[in-house]
Nucleic acid binder design. Structure first.
Lengths: 118, 118
DNA sequence: CATCACGGTATCCTTTTCGACACTATGTGC
DNA sequence: GCACATAGTGTCGAAAAGGATACCGTGATG
């Protein structure tokens, strides 16, 4: 049964899978994508992502920070000001993010997905 | 007007998000990645992904099929034979998959290319 | 006859995820 | 005095994702 083409590895380290684990939150990719364009504050991100709750946003942001993908800068001002930026590592995800955007634009931008054909 | 760079849209169609929705299963990306190399049968995939159960695999495969990313070919043989392939659409995800692999290799491959079981 | 392999299904259960809502602290505006 | 805005935190509970296990039909194998 030897099938050399498929013998790459029964259980490779799976960089793909590992990468996936860093960005498995539904919002993470989008957050990173938005952050690609520059610094954003907490509420700016929130307004950019309708449907996300503070709790979720905080959570995702914290995980991204813990994974070293973004940086969080707190200014000790009276109306609290917190700025989020991509880290070097986060910025290096740009090819992936852009590839996703390009794919989405090319493949499901035709007429907007929402097809519920049951 | 501050920052035109951020004025892209408060709620763009989000190709990124939409793309993400197609591949949000933990195993989907990996399945697609494996399938890049060619046709695989059900149990071949299963063996390639230790830790996935039949139920999960079936599930993910069905979703991928429903999303038009893979094709499923059933041969009416006595030991049932089912082959999975990437569709055109699925194959067009290659840049994303490869970008993920490249990123993973570059950023978290520091010391784990062992994993040679069997 | 019993078992195995194939490609699943079905059922049950645990874990994780996610949403809603309330609460904090503080300086400003009304 | 009160509400508002910022940037969160905490708790509760529902929903979903995912895992474990058992079962199916059949034909070849032992």
């Amino acid at each position: 049964m030897a099938d050399p083409a498929h013998k790459d590895a029964p259980c490779m380290p799976c960089s793909v899978e590992a990468t996936l684990n860093l960005i498995d939150g539904k919002w993470k990719i989008v957050i990173l994508y938005k952050l690609l364009k520059g610094t954003l504050r907490f509420n700016e991100i929130r307004r950019l992502l309708p449907g996300v709750t503070q709790r979720m946003l905080t959570n995702q942001l914290r995980e991204l920070e813990a994974d070293g993908l973004i940086t969080r800068t707190v200014y000790a001002q009276v109306p609290p000001r917190v700025e989020y930026n991509l880290s070097e590592l986060g910025r290096s995800l740009e090819p992936i993010l852009m590839a996703m955007k390009a794919w989405g634009d090319a493949n499901l931008n035709r007429s907007l997905p929402a097809a519920e054909a049951a």
